[in-house]
Amino acid sequence: MKAIHVPMAGIVNYKKVAEKMAELIQEKGGHILLNHMVESITETADEVVIDTNHGTIKGSFYINCAGLHSDRIAKLANIKTDVRIVPFRGEYYQLKPEKRYLVKNLIYPVPNPNFPFLGVHFTRMIDGTVDVGPNAVLSFKREGYLKTDFSLRDMKDVLYFKGFWKLASQYMKEGVEEMVRSFSKRQFVKSVQKLMPDIQENDLLPGPSGVRAQALKEDGTLVDDFYIVHGNRSIHILNAPSPAATASIEIGKEMIRHLEKFRLVV
């Protein structure tokens, strides 16, 4: 087996990072409004009016970084795009404690250039646990973290989008393989053993899952880079591929540069 060693690669506790960001926002006088569902957006020449299920918010500008719902927010603002968010669930296992010694760093496969997914890999976390995964399967709900989660609205958005069927016809084999790995631990382990041959089926314990907000174009192309569009008084981040969390501070700096074009930064 051959590999490239990247000694500066690392990991953080992103929950702690997010909590610190929230703390800094509030220290600067910002407000964090949870459980506010956006119902309508109106951009005028002078202001932005956002109606939510808990009242109306007015301002001079807004940034849409709503992840799994970013395309819907853009649609509410009458932003014309050729992308649709298609949710892909990534399922993980965790290495049992007595086998964690096998993984001292981050171990990644060479990615498939046609797929903007990382493939099954090993991630040694801050607390010493080791995540193994993920696969990449179509989620039947935008926030569907379980195999049984289902949303009729979300599935209609996928199935009525012609870009999805173009993608499915082009990568049917890969899609079926990912689905098989989702339901067959044995097949999942075979993927793991390409990186770590010593891993056996009983070395893996059930782990968490995440849902990727993948932007898909009408021609069936998976967007593999940041996809940012502008409104009259808005910026819409419609695709933020991995490692978006790692790059979040740099993405923020990029947003500042965009805002400078609107002369909103002093």
Rank of each mutant, 00 (worst) to 15 (best):
R153A: 12
V180K: 15
L167S: 03
V132L: 06
N114W: 11
F140D: 03
R153M: 11
R142N: 13
R142E: 08
F122V: 02
W165T: 00
G128C: 07
V176G: 14
R124V: 00
E177S: 09
F150H: 08
N135P: 00
F140M: 11
N112C: 06
N112S: 07
M172V: 12
A168D: 02
T123Q: 09
G175V: 03
L118N: 12
N112D: 15
V180E: 12
M179F: 11
F161M: 01
V137W: 09
P113F: 04
F140A: 10
Q170H: 12
W165N: 07
N114P: 10
R181G: 08
D149V: 00
F164C: 01
Q170Y: 14
V158Q: 05
V176R: 12
F117S: 10
F161R: 01
Y171T: 06
F164K: 01
T148A: 11
L167D: 08
K156C: 04
V132T: 08
F140K: 10
F150I: 03
D149H: 10
Y160Q: 08
M172E: 13
E143L: 01
L167N: 03
L146R: 10
Q170R: 15
L138M: 06
A168Y: 04
E174R: 00
W165S: 09
F122K: 03
D127W: 12
V176F: 13
V137G: 06
N114F: 14
P113T: 03
G175E: 10
A136C: 11
V120K: 13
M172K: 14
L167C: 03
F140N: 09
G175Y: 13
F150W: 11
K156V: 00
T123P: 15
S169C: 15
Y145P: 01
G163Q: 08
T148I: 02
N112T: 07
M125D: 12
R124H: 09
S139T: 02
E177W: 13
V158P: 02
K156A: 08
R124M: 05
Y145K: 05
G119R: 09
A136I: 05
I126M: 15
E177R: 04
N135S: 02
L118C: 10
Y171Q: 06
K166N: 04
A136Y: 10
W165F: 14
I126G: 03
G119Q: 04
G133I: 07
P116Q: 00
P116D: 00
D127S: 11
T148D: 14
D154A: 09
D149L: 04
V176P: 15
A168C: 06
I126R: 12
R142K: 12
W165I: 02
G128L: 08
K162V: 11
L118E: 14
N135V: 00
P134A: 10
L152Y: 09
A168W: 04
E178T: 05
S169P: 07
D157L: 02
R181L: 03
Y160P: 00
L167P: 09
N135F: 01
